[in-house]
Design a protein around this nucleic acid. Structure first.
Lengths: 364, 364
DNA sequence: ATCGCGAACTTGTGCGTACATGTTAATTTT
DNA sequence: AAAATTAACATGTACGCACAAGTTCGCGAT
């Protein structure tokens, strides 16, 4: 090692202090002697001491607190002020995600952060690519909407890497079962569907069909709320009245099964749909088959999106607090960024959605 | 942005110099005034000047040569393989923009690039903040949807700065009049509106109202197409049949004027709307007033969005190639990134939209 | 016991000086 | 004409002082 190449006093002091830190004689968090103390002890001017210290502050070895002192920084947590936040969602342009992204952006940009946007198309391999990509970038934190969140994640190693790099992240709109204790902002899907089905039951419906997505956690939770509301209302839970669909068959299965039920005259009087898009398409199919909504069959949607507003019969739906979801995630992430112990203090928030009654259900 | 929050002299000098560099008034490689010169000129001590300069050296904006002087560092010469592209749009969640962003992302992510997303809320000051922000980041190129593009831009200096730093950028969906020769991807708004109005004229309509947005270039061009189609059809151009609205009064003005026209029984028989959202709301208001579409009045929209599909009477509209617009912009930008002389070879593309005939217009 | 105040500390800003050291270009010497 | 010297000017190091601003803690009043 060709030490002391530079013979300047400030430089030698800087090297000395750096050595002390690297050797562990000055421990992370420990306070070093004050500038005046060092200047006196070493017969240097305070100016010279300050120069040495400021270099080490710049390099991330020390940090100063005005009025309190100068401390040794934990080198494992490298200072990162890129002001970039990674945002990974399943889709960009579809459905509720633009609004969620909007909410995230409004909070982050107000705090001087920029968004690095990625989408996975709800494909786990693409999620891996996104995470790999983002790990190489200079980002301070991440907001992640899980991909196919009902399933186990194959990408756990990337989340471990994020932890190892001390990059905080927060799940939004879902989470992986293996990562249950992590920070997350969720919609209370069960409560939302519970409110819808309870409302249908109170209107006197007896045979309430439920349509749910099988491969995300929202679908499972909405199903839970459906089952709970039925049981509370004293109605039987009939597996034949529950339609499960997957991402791959989402465009055909729900409608085929409903059509079959109608043709078989199974006597169903209400359909609680996984979301507004399904509800809207179910509505169109029913109208095509000559079934009137809400006179013959009541329908509820979920999300209170434009599908609900623009449907000829405005759909009773559960309001999805899209922007609030994004805003909350961003706010909580900012909070985590300030917390040195964010890994031990996961932040979790559940937003309870409310039922919005419109025109697609009537009393039986 | 909380600029000059720090009122320290060295800090303000640092910010000033950084601004000069980012704006290109101090060019890469150029020598800045000596420390003594700056100290004299600004009535500061040399110490203070040194502090400002040393910060910029640390941040990579300047470099010093002992005995010679201090110079601006050519940041563009540094190989930039950040694989980041800045995307600035007016809105994130509204209207066509999610699809445009989707199109951009699909091409960029397929080529290994990541998107840094910013939105301006159609506000020029926020656009300035976005550009300022992005200039400090490590990005290779930008895709920009202009803000209030019919007006002159106050932010020209930022675009000059992008040129000075040799960061390619391409305008999408509009451009600033002062930057006419730059790369751009546009929709042929005039041709689209021309097709709609020509269609209305061919159906026998005589009094065709036009609703246009006054503060973006799309509005002006759609108006041009409207005027051209009228003149080709031998119909008079009546200024009283043209409604101009601005961002600020977009929620009231078009509908108030239309209502007045109906109440005054002015005999209008068709309305060519600036976009589907306007058309949808006009439709709702007409229905509320007891006017039937298309029996009493024909309506055309623009963009062929979900407003058009979900309207009780499906709206004849002009198909907006949203994703294609984004894809083209991304492809052309990638092309520019490979071209060392991209400034001399601007790429320009115009996409001609087509009319989609649905149910909101009938023969007179 | 609690509050308010100030003394005594800390780092932060800003001015001054002096001299060291490296670069450049004009000047002088060879 | 080429080489050496030197003046002028650039940044680099190092010292000094004064005051601003934030934190901590103990003392005295309540």
């Amino acid at each position: 090692m060709q030490k002391s190449e530079n013979q300047a006093k400030y430089y030698k002091l800087m090297e000395y202090l750096k050595e002390e830190i690297l050797m562990g004689r000055i421990k992370p968090g420990e306070q070093i002697p004050s500038e005046n103390m060092l200047a006196d002890k070493l017969s240097l001017s305070r100016h010279t001491v300050r120069k040495a210290i400021s270099m080490l502050v710049n390099e991330g070895y020390l940090y100063t607190e005005h009025g309190r002192g100068t401390y040794c920084l934990d080198r494992s947590r490298k200072r990162n002020d890129s002001k970039n936040i990674g945002v990974i969602t399943t889709y960009i342009s579809e459905y509720i995600f633009p609004k969620v992204i909007q909410g995230i952006d409004s909070v982050l940009s107000a705090n001087g952060y920029s968004i690095m946007l990625k989408n996975t198309n709800n494909n786990t391999e693409k999620e891996a690519l996104c995470l790999e990509d983002v790990l190489e970038k200079n980002i301070e934190g991440m907001i992640i909407e899980p991909t196919k969140s009902a399933l186990f994640s194959n990408n756990l190693k990337y989340y471990e890497a994020l932890d190892n790099h001390r990059i905080p992240y927060i799940f939004i709109h879902g989470f992986y079962q293996q990562l249950e204790g992590k920070s997350q902002v969720l919609l209370d899907d069960a409560a939302g569907m519970h409110a819808a089905v309870k409302y249908l039951a109170e209107l006197g419906h007896k045979k309430i069909v439920g349509i749910f997505k099988a491969d995300d956690i929202q679908g499972l939770n909405r199903h839970k709320g459906y089952a709970k509301a039925l049981s509370e209302a004293g109605l039987p839970y009939d597996p034949d009245h529950v339609i499960w669909f997957h991402t791959e068959d989402r465009d055909v299965k729900p409608y085929n099964v409903i059509r079959q039920m109608i043709e078989e005259k199974s006597g169903i009087d209400a359909i609680a749909c996984y979301n507004d898009e399904i509800a809207f398409k179910v509505f169109e199919m029913l109208r095509f088959m000559g079934v009137n909504v809400p006179e013959d069959i009541s329908i509820t949607g979920f999300d209170d999106s434009y599908f609900s507003a623009n449907c000829p019969v405005k759909l009773t739906s559960v309001r999805h607090p899209k922007e609030q979801l994004g805003e909350s995630a961003a706010e909580l992430l900012l909070q985590m960024l300030k917390d040195d112990d964010y890994l031990k203090n996961p932040v979790q928030k559940v937003i309870v959605p409310e039922l919005v009654v419109k025109d697609s259900c009537i009393q039986r």
